[in-house]
Design a binder for these strands. Structure first.
Lengths: 255, 255
DNA sequence: CGGCAAGTTGAGCCAGGTCAACTCCGGTGG
DNA sequence: CCACCGGAGTTGACCTGGCTCAACTTGCCG
């Protein structure tokens, strides 16, 4: 097979994934976008600096995970959002005050799209436009929902919500109740506005209550989805019910 | 002057404001959008219910202020975002889980846009498309910034950030340092994830430190913008410096 | 000018932050 | 192959910012 100039795109998730932005482009568009764009590999900790964002303000995540981080004067750090496979980040003319830094949280491949070609495509290709539009709206409403979580939920409730968020966003689903957490504990804590210690204690409690079970730090199984759902929704009525763990133990020991 | 079918639009901020969505439409587009859309007046507390959002998922705020509220099982309530003049809310095909309720926080006029005509316009009118796109992006990054505020900032810091947010969003600026808070204390507390009591105490402290001064509950003057900025940015080094108020008092009493 | 919601003030308490010590794990080099 | 190392994660003890509840004041609207 002859490798067109856009041949590299054949390997890219944004091209071959159904619904991926580049899969909606015609040959000519793909050609010119590809010619004017640059893809990069990032490792954990790599930062896309401000200068770079000025020349390359439009990014597409091909694989991996990026974070938008905000830093306070005294070093407190927050992750305002996660960007994952298929997400498009459009920072054209963003005033600096709206900008955090974009930092990779693991090995990632991103494509810096030519702002000009990107803009042209949005104007002329309604189906590509729709994909980008949907993506941005999802980001918006996700961010708002996340705000709501941060504003009023307690530690356990935030963790529960987060697990569902991971479940909804994950691309490959091994089994219905398996969820993979795509980031380290520290990042998770920063995203949820809590301390790593608190995250640890929270997960421990959820395990003790028999609601979930960790395979390892990054992957878990939901054992009692309704209970987890109730916690995520802030239903405190069941807070002091006997836990599944306790109950099972008693039955076994007296049975 | 002859009143065209879209005559009602002549009065609307979205039409006559520079940069307003409808000001970017040509006569024909305005005509058909207007014919298929419905504007409504809302009063504080009016809710746009879920059914309504299914038939009219695209809204444009002409004047006033709406909130996106999320409710937890046990009654805790959060305001995830404010929508103000010029904002466009596009809820087409949003899964229910991403949806809070839209509730007016004061007298507002909104225009329910025909989703079909709105969609057609986005495809065909690049300049209108750009306006909507910019608006959505602003909403996105604002929501992310707000998440960052909620995640790690303390009460005072959140208040300080909020004042700057109001300053940036307000349409009419009386004087450089006057800021109008567009919502009541309760709403503000819900937006910032705190209690009204805490809001009150926070503002009191900022006044006592001589950083700002309230004209009435809704409007204030910033007296020391750099100090407010430092607080908003989470600089705790100045936390226990003598306050302007204290200093002034001492000078006067010994002078 | 009265009534009621909004906002403020005060006192006490607790969820989660902080700090410090410890364990676990993956990678590295001898 | 194993000993070592360093960062990530966990556990424990303590402390505090902001929540809670209750009483009070203010200000708006009829």
């Amino acid at each position: 097979m002859k490798l067109t100039p856009a041949g590299k795109c054949q390997q890219c998730s944004a091209f071959h994934e159904v619904g991926g932005f580049c899969s909606h482009l015609d040959a000519e568009e793909l050609e010119s976008l590809s010619a004017e764009s640059r893809s990069v590999m990032l490792r954990r900790g790599d930062t896309i600096d401000s200068n770079e964002l000025n020349t390359w303000p439009v990014l597409l995540i091909a694989t991996g995970i990026l974070s938008m981080q905000h830093l306070l004067e005294d070093g407190r750090k927050t992750i305002a959002a996660f960007f994952m496979q298929g997400d498009i980040i459009d920072m054209r003319n963003m005033p600096a005050r709206h900008r955090g830094s974009l930092i990779a949280l693991g090995k990632s491949k991103i494509c810096r799209l030519s702002p000009k070609v990107f803009g042209d495509i949005l104007e002329k290709n309604p189906s590509a436009q729709r994909v980008v539009w949907e993506n941005l709206r999802t980001q918006t409403y996700r961010a708002m929902e996340h705000s709501a979580d941060l504003a009023k939920k307690q530690a356990l409730e935030k963790l529960a919500s987060f697990i569902f968020e991971c479940q909804h966003r994950q691309i490959i689903t091994v089994s219905k109740n398996s969820v993979t957490i795509p980031v380290r504990r520290i990042d998770l804590a920063e995203y949820l506005g809590m301390q790593p210690e608190t995250v640890s204690r929270g997960f421990k409690e959820l395990e003790e209550r028999g609601i979930l079970e960790f395979q390892n730090t990054l992957s878990l199984k939901i054992l009692n989805a309704p209970a987890l759902r109730r916690i995520a929704n802030g239903d405190r009525s069941s807070d002091h019910m006997p836990t599944a763990g306790e109950r099972r133990f008693k039955v076994l020991s007296f049975g």
